[in-house]
Design a binder for these strands. Structure first.
Length: 230
DNA sequence: ACCCAGGTGGCCC
DNA sequence: GGGCCACATGGG
């Protein structure tokens, strides 16, 4: 199946209105970190609380004691890591751009990307989400969901982030609005049917998919044990 | 009880 | 480059 066919099929199956609501580029940046490996609703709780307390600013995060930030982030999970990531981001923006995120977001795409990746807690996907949703750049967010879906469809072999991203960007016009929509479609599809444990019976692409459950799910891998805490 | 979540960094080979 | 692990709360 060709990429364009796939996207059309997904488009007719899912609804993607208002995928990344935010009042400012900075809120997108904060949200990008909060939603790492976390459902949007959980990240949103924290975003709302931050706004309510007047902390949705670079200075607000930069000045808030790390302990208080951690407490604030608890509902979004991985709260210690995310607190450090947000601190690193806010400090970076304060030191280099006088607390104005636009200083970074208006840079040339590749330079901005490298700079984002140099910040602890920001990896490929978070950097691209920021570039796409906060800066409006045509950077495809090649989430795990994207590589999983394309991989099972037999459209690509590698699961390497950059490889998957290149695969898509080579086949699509560099259109930010389109990339945002497509990303949302992949996420919804992978979450609803092309899951870790796939629901092929319920999949809208079932008849055109080469994936046979058994190859990838045979002998389900041992899950990580929850370590006794405290 | 299980599965899953809009990833990242560290360590190892 | 790939595989494994810790990180954590919260909802279905």
């Amino acid at each position: 199946m060709e990429v364009e066919d796939l996207l059309h099929r997904l488009e007719s199956a899912y609804d993607v209105e208002d995928w990344w609501p935010a009042d400012s580029p900075w809120e997108v940046m904060v949200g990008a970190i909060l939603t790492q490996q976390t459902v949007w609703e959980s990240a949103e709780k924290v975003l709302d609380e931050m706004k309510k307390r007047g902390l949705m600013t670079v200075e607000g995060i930069d000045r808030l004691p790390i302990g208080e930030l951690e407490t604030l982030l608890r509902p979004a999970g991985f709260y210690r890591q995310k607190a450090r990531s947000l601190k690193a981001l806010a400090t970076h923006i304060r030191e280099r751009y006088a607390s104005d995120p636009r200083g970074l977001l208006t840079k040339e795409t590749e330079k901005a990307r490298k700079e984002l990746l140099s910040i602890r807690g920001i990896g490929n996907e978070t950097a691209d989400a920021i570039l796409l949703f906060a800066a409006g750049r045509p950077c495809f967010v090649a989430a795990k969901y994207v590589s999983r879906t394309l991989g099972r469809l037999g459209m690509i072999d590698s699961r390497d982030y950059i490889e998957v991203q290149r695969f898509l960007e080579c086949r699509l016009e560099p259109d930010p609005a389109g990339y945002a929509k497509y990303y949302a479609l992949f996420v919804q599809h992978a979450r609803s049917t092309c899951r870790t444990r796939p629901r092929c019976e319920a999949c809208t692409l079932h008849d055109d998919c080469s994936f046979s459950p058994g190859r990838e799910t045979a002998g389900s891998p041992p899950r990580p044990r929850t370590r006794a805490r405290r």
